[in-house]
Design a protein around this nucleic acid. Sequence first.
RNA 1: GCCGGAGUGGUGGAAUGGUAGACACAAGGGACUUAAAAUCCCUCGCGCAGAAACGCGCGUGACGGUUCGAGUCCGUCCUCCGGCACCA
Length: 864
Amino acid sequence: MKETVAQQPDVYNPQSIEPVWQQQWEAAKTFRVTEDPKRPKYYCLVMFPYPSGRIHMGHVRNYVIGDVVARYKSMRGHNVLHPMGWDAFGLPAENAAIEHKKTPQFWTDENILYMRTQLKRLGLSYDWEREVATCKPDYYKWNQWFFLKMYERGLAYKKMSAVNWCPSCETVLANEQVITRDVTNIGLCWRCDSHVEKKELDQWFYKITAYAEELLAECDRLPGWPERVLTMQRNWIGKSVGVEVDFPLADDKNRAIRIFTTRQDTLFGATFVTLSPEHPMVEEIIRGKKESAAVRTFVERITKQDINIRTAQNMEKEGIFTGAHAINPMTKERIPIWIGNFVLMGYGTGAIMCVPAHDQRDFEFAKMYNIPTRVVIQNPEGTLKSDELTAAYTDEAGKLVESGKFSGLSPNEAIEKIAEFIVSEKLGARKTNYKLRDWGISRQRYWGTPIPIIYCERCGTVAVPYDELPVTLPPDVPITGKGGSPLQADKNFLNVKCPKCGGPARRETDTMDTFVDSSWYFFRYLSPKMDTAPFDTKSADYWMPVDQYIGGIEHAVLHLLYARFFTKVVRDLGLTKADEPFTNLLTQGMVCMETYRCEEHGWLFPGDLIGSEKEGWHCPHCNRPAVRGRVEKMSKSKKNIVDPEQLIATYGADTARLFSLFAAPPEKDLEWNDAGVEGASRFLNRVWRLVTSHAGPGPVSGTDGTERTAALRRVTHQTIKKVTEDLDRNFQFNTAVAALMEFYNAITAQPGDGRDEAIKTLLILLSPFAPHIAEELWKRLGHTGSVLTQPWPRWTEAALATDEITIVIQINGKLRGQIRVPAGLDEKEIQHRAMADGKIKDWLKGQPPKKVIYVKGKLVSIVL
RNA sequence: GCCGGAGUGGUGGAAUGGUAGACACAAGGGACUUAAAAUCCCUCGCGCAGAAACGCGCGUGACGGUUCGAGUCCGUCCUCCGGCACCA
């Protein structure tokens, strides 16, 4: 402490005590952790940040939640691993390089340095010796190592594919990185909101689809995950079980169109077939037909359209008859073949059978083009008529009709029976489809992990040998933001000798999607300095899986699915026993704040407004009224941000921590409000005054046996119970903090002896939430050693017991009175006293009650 | 359209089927102070009644139902938020 301010021991001054304790913890290596088979392990993980420059309130909330969990579990006797690191590759570093003429490396290192000190100011209990940064060669070497392992196993492969191309970022995006935000359903870049285009490129993929079934099935075995996250993952994997069926061409019975359906029970009702405009058989079937010219024009027009626009929800269905016919394999009827703009080549076989009677989309299409409709599932009332339908009949109830030997079956029975028939008659096969696509990992970018592949003129695609890893990024590459990958311009990087034949070859210049980095970082924390393997399997056997993972809901699909996939790959490489990386998942809500706008000057910082709540706020530039906007996620663009650094400077880290925990349950959005921060600060000030005014030269005398002392002891144990249960049950930090406030109120409400145990307990219970003040006051009470190493207090049922209890009396379910009775009084006597109560007597009016219900220790309910 | 989640005071939010509104914020009143800040105390869902006290009625998005008793369980609906969506 360099401050020369006179020490005023009676004033709570977080700015002076917080750094002292942070240094103390660091010097004592309080949070360093190693494997310890004697203690139960607890792996508490928070999503590591992208080093964008400064931490924001979302980070604060995330890390404070994680810190309370870690500190609490540690006090409960667990050996807690609580690491932190940096998701350090990514586009902003390149943008910064263009803007500020700093290399991505320099910019990133600078940011990490700054943000690390910011995090340290929050007093977070990280084992900093395990810090990792994904942009360091000793980290990304292992991205490359995993790539090679996957390449060997056929899990990494290259193919030409139409990819999402962001013209602004000049890079490829994964499907998951294309978002649709408004009703037009147009694909936008997840990072910059640009309109995404299609482009054909040769790309590297990870074969996540090989694990689709396991990723889906394991969703049922993740009870510690929020249901909505599992739902999103299930939707994303998008499994559908059905059959592929061949519809032979009428002109050539040896050729057939293969369709995919999940509703084979309606096969007899298929009155036409529709192909995707991209379907490879289109040209074959229209050859020589009078419709061929019109069809070609149609196909050309549709395929030119952006796929995102074409598949938008409100896109008009459009189709054209090909002039060709197919044979319905069940009815043997000739049915027309159409081409439709709504049929996707990328799903199933790119061809569908159409059953207008039992599929709403097919129904609308058939109505539009006058194609016949045939009812093959009759409703229980028997009222459906093929030519009178006004909508498709899609209910599960009903029986098959006009379906040959399957008539009379329920749709569910028929789905199975007809599938069997299709297989046995060799009309097709059972088939399961997934919406999940393989994960395109190629990025035409500099600041990422180089893909360890070499292209040789003679040997073709050659893997970089393991002993040549890592393929490092060349440090001085000009980054312009234009054209393709900057690595292509670096001839030293690009031109290499082939590892196989020694001949001239060139390197792959694409780098990996940064989601690769974050798919396994939780393994790297276990042995961050290991240089012979990505991590130590022995450590993983001890620590994995992560007991509690905490982060934003925005990663519900992308990051969490990739991390699950990677874990399964790592397991199949024999490196871990874990099937799933994260046992429990807590998705914390966003940090929001109200927004203000001036019609002239746009968004305004709330802190800059002039005026007052009562008189109304005005724009500081032009004094126009500031219009209050919606409460939205804090963001720079809307200017509704609170800078954590400012907050800590004003109130201290403990207040910042306490408020972000108290204002809302963790999974809900938190609305920031300065007055609430004041409240949290006031509470800590009160605790400070209570303890500092209480602390005497020596320990204060113990229990004195009075009723007041017993009452305080009771509240103490009640609070231990409440806080413990709130933390154990879903981390209800807000109610736990409320219990501590009540506890404080109870202690001060009854001045007198016997506060010792209460105050001591208050500090221990407070320490995970506000560790600095707890440490300081603990010390001032005369304790040696850290409050953090105190065991978590236990409550006893005996201490909770009271001599007298309150019994509530209800008449016909309405509250009519209450009586105090000695604890342990028997039911009969309690009922008797309840009826004898003056007020209750008035209600009874001398009549005997019909019924009396007694809830033990709680209430008497009298029915008249 | 489908699948989740949520609707409680002026506000954020509490309530294993058992006293709705804990805790906090805001607001109002008071004490202390020359004054202010800080701090402390009181009031604080709506209505009725009353000098006061003891009270009474209503009240958790709407309407029904189950129950001695429903914010909580069931049914129907409304609104908002999130996800998915021409996926065959």
